[in-house]
Each structure stands twice: as structure tokens, then as C-alpha cells.
Design a protein around this nucleic acid. Structure first.
Length: 287
DNA sequence: TCCGTATTGTGAGATTGCCA
DNA sequence: TGGCAATCTCACAATACGGA
């Protein structure tokens, strides 16, 4: 399926939602001039199948049979058998992970423009299980086509990995493509996250023992935390505090376990040191 | 045409939360 | 608890635009 109209019966659920994100990640001309940007309608995309269920195992006879019956994406995307173009893929951190291919006609065809499905993460391997029991070539997902919020047709060609089982290369692709969708459309792939604030961390710190564990078990810890903060407004915050799951709280405590064990309050590393380090790194690369 | 400023597009580190 | 994905955020390059 490639058309926008087919979104409802694909392997994703597209759920209209309001106010999932406060605003675009960075103010745009439109965002500055449109007062209602904080209330824009967003569409939450939920893959019907979980990641593990979508992974195809070619060594499994049943999966191997499905692969034999499936059709590969053809040279209208790029010719998988052709030699790569000379030189490295541009504008990626690890060009050695990707092939520098010559894209086919579909990658520049604005006349017969068919919008891609909202992005669903790449899984290891060339093939991916579908809800209908078939498998599909993930090569399709490298080409991203959509009409952006300004009604402009956009096409992004993302480089194919040299190794379809290289998780780091796939992770980078997933991140990049999700960002392409997020920046130009109202599709979102999960609800907006809400950072822990100092008041919450002070509470956490006070309710952990010397080993950095809840003094009265995880369940009561999570319940008490949410009783203290869920839906409460804190000073300096625009929105009420979200409900935190045990998963969220345990991860928070695990991340800063050394700090909490020391009886201190974590301070996000989003500070000048990290920024300066990042800047120096970029400058070095540039040089 | 040049120059300065604003806007847009993109990559990537940091952060958060889900899932196995 | 580790791995991974999605979002937030910063930085920078490219482009657009207006005034001299």
C-alpha cells in the first residue's frame, strides 16, 4: 500500500489526538505566526505488530518459505545488484555503514506522487513480518514520500545499510526517518515525554534507602509518587505532572543510582560542559 | 551586487520510557 | 535490567530576503 487513504488498514494505527506535543521542536515561521500551534491536531502512529513479532528469521523454514513467496522492491527504488556510486554517502555520521546507491525513478517522481506509510521502525534483516501473515521488503521504507503541513510534496532518500542486520545502522535510519516525519507532518510515534523536575527528584531521593531502593517496595513507592505528583501543578511548569509508571521510575533511579545513593539530587547533563564538548567535537570534525 | 539577518533543513547528543 | 526507539534540544549549514 502506498496511498494516504490506505493508512487505516495498514500495519499501523493512526490515532487522532490533540495536544500531544506542546510545539514543534524548534520555532518555525508558521509556528510563530499561528497562535493555535499549541493545540494543533496530531496523529499518533501505533504499529499493529511489536518489534519482535516483525523480525523474520530466514533460518526458520516457515519464514524462508514466506521470503520465497514475497516480492523484492525493484530497481524503481534502486538496483540492489548494481555497483555503488563512487565515494561515500554524504551527510551521515557513519558512511561506512551504508551503500551509496543510484536511486531509481520513483525517488524523483512528483507526478505520480504516492505518500508513504508513516514510519515503522526497521527491524534486523531485509524482510519484515506483516499483519496479514506475509513478509515485506524493508527496502520500501528507505524512500520516504509525504505531503508536508504546507501542502508541499517531499521525498527523502535514505541510504540502504550495507548489512541489514547491523542494528546501529538501522537505529540511525529509524531516528533519521522518524525525524523527517516529525518535522514536516503531524504524525507522531509516541506521546510527548515529560522530564523529571527537581521537586520530583527530591521526593525520590527522600524515599530511597541507602542502597538506592524504595524503602517500602516498588508498588507502594510508585503509588505514593503518583499520589504526590500526578495531575499536580508545580511552580515553573506549564502542565500538570504526568502519571509515572514503575518502568519510568525504576529507569530514572537506575540512571542516577550513584547520585541517589549518595543522597544527592540528579542534575540533567544537558549543561554547558556537554554542549561545549559537542561543539568541540563538531569543530574538530570540520577541521 | 553585496552584506547582514532571519528562516529553514538537517545531524546528532541527551533524555525519557517501553518492552523482552 | 539492558536494549532500543522516540522526542527534545542544540548547533550549524544552506537558503531566503530585505536594505544599502
Amino acid at each position: 500500500m502506498d496511498s494516504e487513504d490506505d493508512l487505516t488498514d495498514s500495519d499501523v494505527d493512526v490515532v487522532p489526538t490533540r495536544g500531544v506535543a506542546k510545539r514543534a521542536t524548534r520555532p518555525t515561521k508558521k509556528a510563530k505566526t499561528v497562535a493555535g500551534v499549541y493545540e494543533e491536531q496530531l496523529f499518533l502512529v501505533n504499529p499493529v505488530m511489536k518489534r519482535m513479532k516483525r523480525i523474520v528469521d530466514p533460518s526458520n523454514p516457515r519464514d524462508a518459505g514466506l521470503i520465497r513467496q514475497a516480492t523484492k522492491a525493484g530497481p524503481e527504488y534502486y538496483d540492489s545488484e548494481a555497483d555503488d556510486l563512487p565515494g561515500e554517502v554524504q551527510s551521515v555520521k557513519h558512511p561506512e555503514w551504508y551503500r551509496n546507491v543510484k536511486w531509481g525513478p520513483i525517488a524523483s517522481d512528483y507526478t505520480h506522487f504516492q505518500q508513504s506509510e508513516p514510519h515503522v521502525q526497521f527491524v534486523p534483516g531485509r524482510w519484515e513480518h506483516q499483519p496479514d501473515g506475509t513478509v515485506r521488503d524493508q527496502k520500501h521504507k528507505l524512500l520516504v514520500k509525504f505531503v508536508d503541513n504546507n501542502g508541499k510534496q517531499k521525498i527523502f532518500t535514505n541510504p540502504p545499510p550495507k548489512d541489514w542486520n547491523h542494528q546501529e545502522a538501522l537505529t540511525a535510519l529509524n531516528k533519521r526517518i522518524a525525524q523527517q516525519w516529525r518535522r514536516s507532518t503531524n504524525y507522531r510515534f509516541r506521546p510527548v515525554v515529560c522530564a523529571y523536575v527537581r521537586e520530583e527528584r527530591v521526593w525520590i531521593s527522600k524515599n530511597l534507602n541507602d542502597e538506592g531502593k524504595p524503602t517500602d517496595g516498588w508498588k507502594s513507592f510508585v503509588d505514593a509518587f503518583n499520589a504526590a505528583f500526578h495531575n499536580k501543578m508545580l511552580s515553573g511548569q506549564d502542565d500538570p505532572r504526568p502519571l509515572r509508571s514503575q518502568s519510568s521510575l525504576t529507569k530514572e533511579i537506575e540512571r542516577f543510582s550513584a547520585v541517589y545513593k549518595a543522597g544527592r539530587i540528579p542534575v540533567p547533563a544537558r549543561n554547558q560542559e556537554n554542549r561545549a564538548a559537542g561543539k568541540a567535537k563538531r569543530q574538530a570534525k570540520k577541521a
